[in-house]
Each structure stands twice: as structure tokens, then as C-alpha cells.
Amino acid sequence: MTITSPRIATVMLLFVSLVWGVEFVLIDLAIARIPTHTFNAIRFALAALSLLPLLWFSAKNEAPLAYNKLIPAGLLLGFLLFIGFYTQTEGLRFTSVSNAGFITGLNVPLVPLLGLFIFRKAVSRPVWIGVCTATIGLYLLTMGDNLAFNYGDVLVLICAFAFATHIVLTGRLVDSLPIIPLSIVQLVAVAVYSTFAALADPNPAFYFPEATPIAWHEQLFNPIVLLAVLIAGVFGTAYAFWAQSASQKLLESHKVALIFAAEPIFAHISAWLFLDETLGEKGMIGAGLIISGMLISELADRQRPAKVRPLEHSAAPD
């Protein structure tokens, strides 16, 4: 399969934002029933298993893997995901969904900043205008008049830095490493990190200290937990990070961050459809600003020639 234009990559990432927006409330319900580390361990293990068929189908076209580069890169990216998903999920216990949505969205301005500081990669002025426009839109969409910070917000801010760093480093690594093996290694790494964290935690792995002890299979097969694990594991994790890695062969890191800023828009749309919640005037303006930020950034780079590369980059690095 081949990505023929950045437009296809953009559609792929918009679907990721859609899944993340829809699953947000479901995960919030699940972590009220199962500890964060345990949920993430199961979620990422399922995600890694979901990608194994793709690895098998693409194996005949792949050159020998350079494990000395693939494994360290996957472990590093996996550690960033582990930190990001733990702090975001745990932060939801102490802060509102609106605060978490806005602060996580701060990875939009953080991506070009970190790209500049880490790799000395500058972006154009119109891109900065688009990034700032989308950030203002994120605030109006998710926060409104609320500007109260707490411990949970600090955790989610760490998550924003972790996700931004992950996007920046992925953009650098995908040009020299095969997509599917890199995705599987980092997903397995998150599952392993989360498992060790769950075992090291003094609290029980499958129920909260204040809850009645139950067997692990009773906890795992709770309908809400099971649904959250399946949707988040297969679509929100396996597909999401495979699509991100594949699309970053065609899209700059700041564009990926801007597309992911659409997540709260989809979250509000799903809340409107299923929970009869209204967006409000400020929310409508915020959504419009996020979309405007994407368009400003896209138009700024319109004159650049598109990079057309295979979706499966199987050549081993030099």
C-alpha cells in the first residue's frame, strides 16, 4: 500500500483524532473501575498483538532489520508513550475532562518549539500563526471561562511534553526505520513498562484499595472495561501509532500536531450526538480557530513538493 499524497496522510490522522475524541469518555469510565497502569498494560499489549498480522504480511518484502537501532528507538518512543498515557490517564482522576483536553492540546505549540530546540529545525512564520490560532481555539473549545489548575493539570502537562517529544522524535526516526516493527516495539515497550509499574505499585493491580476485592477476570470482563480496552487498544493505539508513524513520512511534525488538535472537536461532536450536550458559542469559535490554524499551516507549505513514499518503508537503515 502506498500513500500517494499528504492529503491521504491527513485523512488517516483525522480518523485517529476522531477515535481519540470518541474514546475519551469511555476511558474515563474505565479507569474508575481499573487502575491506570493495569489498563494501559492490557491496552498496549492488545495493540501490539493487533499489528502482528501486518508484520507477517509485509515480512517477505522486508530487508533484514537493524535491531541495534530498532530496539533502542522503540524503547525510547515507548517510554515517552508510557509517560504520556500514564500522566494523562492518572490526571483525569484529579482534573476535569475540559482541563485535560486543553492541556494535552498544548503539544500543538510544543512540537515546533521542541523541534527547534532539539534539532534546530525552524518553521515559517505562517506556521507559527497557524499554531497559535489553533492553541487559542483549543482554549475556547475546552476551557471556556475556567482557568483553575490543580495536581491533575500538572500531570497532564507532563503528558503534553511527552506526546510532543514523541511526535518530534518519530518524525526523525521514521525515515530510517521500518514502520510496523518500530510501532510494535514501542507498543510492547509500553505494555512492559506499565506491567512493571502495576506490579511495583503498593496498591492492588486489579481493583482500588477502597473497593471490594474481585478476581482479575471479573475486573477485565466488566463490560465497560472490556469495551474500552478493545476500542482503545485496536483503534486508539494500534491503528493510531501505526498511522502516525506512516504519515510522518509525508507530513511535518507540526502538521501532525495540528491535525491531532482536532481531537476535542470530535469529542464535542460525539457528546452532542450521544449525550445531547451543546457546544456553545465559545466552543464553536474555538473549533473554527482550530480548523483555521490547520488551513493556515497547510497553505503556508502548499508550494513545497509533496513527498510520495511507500507506506511500508522496509529498507534497513545504513
Results as ranks from 00 to 15, higher is better:
residue 117 F to T: 03
residue 106 L to T: 01
residue 86 Y to L: 10
residue 127 V to D: 01
residue 121 K to Y: 01
residue 94 F to G: 01
residue 90 E to V: 11
residue 106 L to E: 00
residue 82 F to P: 00
residue 155 L to P: 09
residue 67 Y to V: 04
residue 154 V to F: 07
residue 102 F to Y: 02
residue 97 V to Q: 11
residue 92 L to T: 05
residue 57 F to C: 08
residue 107 N to Q: 08
residue 74 G to W: 01
residue 93 R to C: 01
residue 52 L to Y: 05
residue 134 A to Q: 08
residue 127 V to A: 11
residue 122 A to S: 05
residue 153 D to H: 10
residue 129 I to D: 07
residue 84 G to H: 05
residue 49 L to A: 11
residue 126 P to N: 09
residue 37 H to R: 15
residue 61 N to F: 07
residue 95 T to Q: 01
residue 130 G to W: 04
residue 103 I to G: 02
residue 76 L to G: 10
residue 118 I to D: 00
residue 142 T to G: 10
residue 41 A to G: 13
residue 135 T to C: 12
residue 111 V to Q: 02
residue 115 G to A: 00
residue 130 G to R: 06
residue 91 G to I: 06
residue 93 R to P: 04
residue 150 N to M: 09
residue 44 F to V: 13
residue 111 V to C: 02
residue 107 N to A: 03
residue 152 G to C: 08
residue 36 T to R: 01
residue 36 T to Q: 06
residue 77 L to E: 12
residue 104 T to K: 04
residue 59 A to L: 10
residue 39 F to T: 14
residue 145 D to P: 15
residue 62 E to H: 11
residue 104 T to M: 03
residue 143 M to F: 01
residue 124 S to V: 11
residue 140 L to R: 06
residue 81 L to K: 03
residue 59 A to T: 12
residue 55 L to M: 11
residue 125 R to Y: 13
residue 150 N to G: 10
residue 121 K to H: 07
residue 108 V to I: 06
residue 52 L to Q: 10
residue 101 G to K: 08
residue 111 V to Y: 02
residue 43 R to C: 13
residue 49 L to I: 14
residue 67 Y to G: 02
residue 67 Y to R: 13
residue 122 A to Y: 04
residue 57 F to R: 15
residue 121 K to S: 08
residue 84 G to M: 08
residue 60 K to F: 07
residue 76 L to C: 11
residue 113 L to A: 01
residue 148 A to G: 12
residue 146 N to Q: 15
residue 112 P to N: 01
residue 51 L to Q: 02
residue 152 G to Q: 11
residue 155 L to N: 03
residue 73 A to V: 14
residue 112 P to H: 04
residue 106 L to N: 03
residue 148 A to M: 14
residue 58 S to D: 12
residue 54 L to D: 00
residue 66 A to F: 02
residue 101 G to D: 03
residue 42 I to D: 05
residue 77 L to Q: 13
residue 153 D to E: 11
residue 81 L to R: 04
residue 128 W to N: 07
residue 38 T to W: 01
residue 74 G to Y: 03
residue 139 Y to A: 15
residue 123 V to D: 06
residue 77 L to H: 13
residue 148 A to K: 15
residue 138 L to W: 01
residue 56 W to S: 09
residue 129 I to S: 09
residue 136 I to D: 07
residue 71 I to G: 07
residue 78 G to T: 12
residue 126 P to T: 12
residue 57 F to S: 13
residue 145 D to R: 14
residue 40 N to F: 10
residue 46 L to S: 02
residue 50 S to T: 15
residue 116 L to M: 00
residue 56 W to R: 12
residue 138 L to M: 15
residue 78 G to M: 06
residue 125 R to I: 14
residue 48 A to R: 07
residue 120 R to I: 01
residue 99 N to Y: 04
residue 129 I to C: 10
residue 37 H to I: 14
residue 56 W to I: 15
residue 102 F to A: 07
residue 68 N to V: 14
residue 120 R to E: 01
residue 65 L to E: 12
residue 81 L to C: 08
residue 148 A to S: 14
residue 114 L to Q: 00
residue 139 Y to H: 11
residue 58 S to M: 12
residue 98 S to G: 13
residue 39 F to Y: 15
residue 97 V to W: 06
residue 106 L to K: 00
residue 74 G to H: 02
residue 141 L to M: 09
residue 149 F to H: 09
residue 86 Y to I: 12
residue 70 L to D: 02
residue 96 S to I: 03
residue 108 V to H: 06
residue 100 A to C: 04
residue 146 N to S: 15
residue 102 F to E: 05
residue 110 L to M: 05
residue 155 L to W: 04
residue 117 F to H: 00
residue 110 L to A: 00
